[in-house]
Design a protein around this nucleic acid. Sequence first.
DNA 1: CTGAATACCTGACGGC
DNA 2: TGCCGTCAGGTATTCA
Length: 268
Amino acid sequence: MPELPEVETVANGVHERTHGQTIRAVWTSNKPQTFKTPPDQIIETLTNSRIERVHRVGKTIVMDVIRNKKPAQFLIHLGMSGRLLVSDPKVPVPAHTHGILTLSGGREIRFVDPRRFGRLSIAESTYEGPGKEPLTISLKDFIALFRNRKTPIKAALLNQSLLHGVGNIYADESLFRAGIRPRRQAGRLTHADLGRLRTALIDVLKHAIKLGGSSVSDYVDAEGIAGFFQLHHNVYSRTGEPCRVCKTAIERIVVGGRSTHFCPHCQK
DNA sequence: CTGAATACCTGACGGC
DNA sequence: TGCCGTCAGGTATTCA
């Protein structure tokens, strides 16, 4: 499901509804692929801990907890289909639920993930993610990321060890706003190109966060509410539809193994 | 090291 | 109705 704006929306929603509460009990499924840290250790670390803060790093939701005065972090990566929901225990537990945290306030945090591309793990203290934050990176650092890269700019934007948090929707949308073709070699973009791309990316991410993210199939926030940024997509999933700027039909190609959408007239 | 291909999962949708 | 192919917001691993 989720890229930076969706993950941020979920993290903020879970934070508002749960921070300061104590985790009374933890349940997990037994699907090994879901757990980067063994379930026993997750249960041990989280049971009787207090939730200090829930926030986002890249596409990962980070829950800061304290147990016996010792800090730890619970990391939730939603993969393609993961949801993190704050629910009343009376609401039936959805299919494909892999984790439940029972809270002192009477509600539960549920991790639901049909495709099981999501991952749960424990970190010691300061998780920093694999790359740089798109919302705060300087222009100088942004330009340096792509220097000498032969891969298409679209693929470079999706590389989480460069920038973390950008996924398929916002890669396509930011390249449209910057007027750059997805297959251009990253290392051959001019400083002007990269300046426009950084601005476009930050603008599109911030706009999407304001609208609660994009709900393409079934993404919802912590309370089960859909986002609305999909109504503002210029190219993503608009194959064959007229460009909102020039009316040329939006094209779909495959770049870096991912479906890629662009306007052949507006993007050079 | 970089970059490309593949594997990992379930479910929705369209065509026949 | 139902069966089959295709596609989906991601990333770890493997191979050249």
